[in-house]
Design a protein around this nucleic acid. Structure first.
Length: 318
DNA sequence: AAAGTACTCAACCGCTCTGAA
DNA sequence: CTTCAGAGCGGTTGAGTACTT
């Protein structure tokens, strides 16, 4: 999806009285990248404002830094969709930290905070559309950013991300449940019927870059034992091993507010009960299409008999 | 094939944090 | 202690592309 660099863009850059560009904005050109890279080679990734003050580039220091961080920095997985494991990490860490994208990104080698932010934003938009409801209250700096969602508490964020990401060119498919199906399940069932995670999840282990398009993983942060193999995504014996699950479906009913539930109710009518996460896309290369919601008839016959043992009982209806 | 919609990505803005003077 | 500049971060926007109808 490469855009032609230097093309007209919404932000044209400030100009002086003579019309000459003082601060250039918009897409970066290859020559600008070269200058920026040269600066980093000689000075390191710092002194960004030096670039502007010395007239090396008609860009602000901020802009230079951003360009470096998001595009020019080595070891970036640019153009590579989030793998299932990466998605899982994002979901988990967002639950822990809230919208601390930079912090989350430190746990994802090759990913920038912008990547994570975009990923999350896309997910939220899709979710909002599915629920036919507006996104949760806009930023105001205090709401979303400061309110991490617990790993077990359901909020809109906890609804799984449907796998467009599974179509990534070089990363593993995302075997997420069919999000539309998820929306068809009453919230008290999505929470308890699926899986019930009580207590803290095990520490995140990073994807072993096996799906990653580039093997040049950045240094790992010290806080987490990334040298250990990833813990099982779900301690769930019945799961097909080929379908490692992202945790998006790990949802608990309790926190979903009644408003959302009321909005979901009409949608739930046509389908009595669907186990949402079984509408998975266990992609094996080509990707297997999710089961359509209206054709789950023999579906359960294929599942191990004991796979529901670990599931909670249905809670009493509201 | 065309139109509409959804998705992705790059880059901006404004605010906050941090360290030096 | 205060001020200020630079760096960093999160939110937002809109163009281009992909997908669906």
């Amino acid at each position: 999806m490469a855009r032609a660099p230097g093309g007209a863009r919404r932000r044209g850059g400030r100009r002086d009285a003579a019309g000459g560009e003082v601060v250039r904005k918009g897409p970066w050109m290859a020559e600008e990248d070269e200058v920026l890279l040269e600066h980093v080679r000689t000075h390191g990734p710092r002194d960004w404002s030096f670039i502007q003050s010395k007239g090396l580039l008609p860009r602000t220091g901020k802009s230079c830094r951003l360009r470096w961080v998001n595009k020019l920095r080595p070891n970036l997985k640019s153009g590579c969709k989030f793998s299932a494991e990466e998605e899982r990490v994002v979901l988990e860490l967002q639950g822990q930290f809230g919208n601390k994208w930079a912090r989350i990104a430190t746990h994802l080698p090759g990913r920038t905070d912008n990547d994570v932010k975009n990923f999350w934003s896309t997910r939220q938009k899709r979710l909002a559309r599915l629920l036919r409801a507006p996104l949760p209250g806009r930023s105001s700096k205090s709401s979303s950013a400061k309110a991490p969602v617990s790993a077990t508490g359901l909020c809109l964020d906890q609804v799984p991300f449907e796998g467009n990401s599974s179509s990534g060119q070089c990363c593993a498919a995302t075997p997420f449940m069919d999000a539309e199906n998820a929306a068809l399940v009453p919230h008290d069932q999505t929470g308890s019927v699926l899986l019930s995670f009580e207590g803290p999840l095990p520490p995140i282990a990073l994807a072993t870059d096996s799906h990653a398009c580039s093997s040049n993983a950045a240094p790992l942060p010290p806080e987490l034992p990334f040298d250990q193999p990833p813990y099982p995504l779900i301690g769930f014996s019945g799961m097909p091993e080929s379908c490692d699950m992202a945790p998006g479906f790990i949802s608990a009913a309790g926190a979903m507010d009644d408003l959302v539930y009321q909005e979901l109710l009409p949608m739930m009518q046509p389908v009595p009960m669907i186990l949402p996460f079984f509408g998975t896309e266990c992609s094996h290369g080509d990707g297997v299409k999710a089961e359509p919601p209206d054709a789950p008839a023999d579906f359960f016959d294929d599942l191990p008999a004991d796979m529901f043992d670990s599931l909670d009982q249905l809670p009493p209806p509201l």
